[in-house]
């Protein structure tokens, strides 16, 4: 079994070095295997290097897939991080 969900990256910085480090640290708190897929390429969410190499920029659609005992919790937590409201222009 596994759960997955797609999301479009809104952070203008993409999934960049420091956000990526946070993302990886979060992923490592779960026992499930978690992957991030972009255009058919898959990255291990528990590897900073793997995530960095994926080159996720703003506007990219990615799919998070979690598989394991705590898969739903892992999916929810990582999606929440990816969807966290980044810098946006304040409406006047």
């Amino acid at each position: 079994m596994s759960v997955s969900s797609s999301v479009v990256i809104t952070d203008p910085l993409g999934l960049h070095a420091r956000p990526a480090a946070q993302f990886v640290e979060k992923a490592r708190t779960f026992a499930s295997d978690v992957t991030l897929d972009k255009d058919g390429t898959s990255a291990n969410c528990k590897s900073l290097l793997s995530i960095l190499k994926l080159g996720v920029t703003q506007g990219t659609e990615v799919t998070v897939t979690a598989s394991g005992d705590d898969e739903q919790g892992a999916l929810d937590a990582l999606l929440a991080l990816l969807q966290a409201e980044p810098e946006a222009e304040r409406s006047p």
Binding site: R18, A21, V24, N44, S47, L49
Partner: peptide, 12 residues
């Protein structure tokens, strides 16, 4: 501290 993440990175 970011370097610590590399030491147990499966890709490394």
């Amino acid at each position: 501290e970011a370097q610590l993440l590399v030491l147990d990175d499966p890709e490394w």
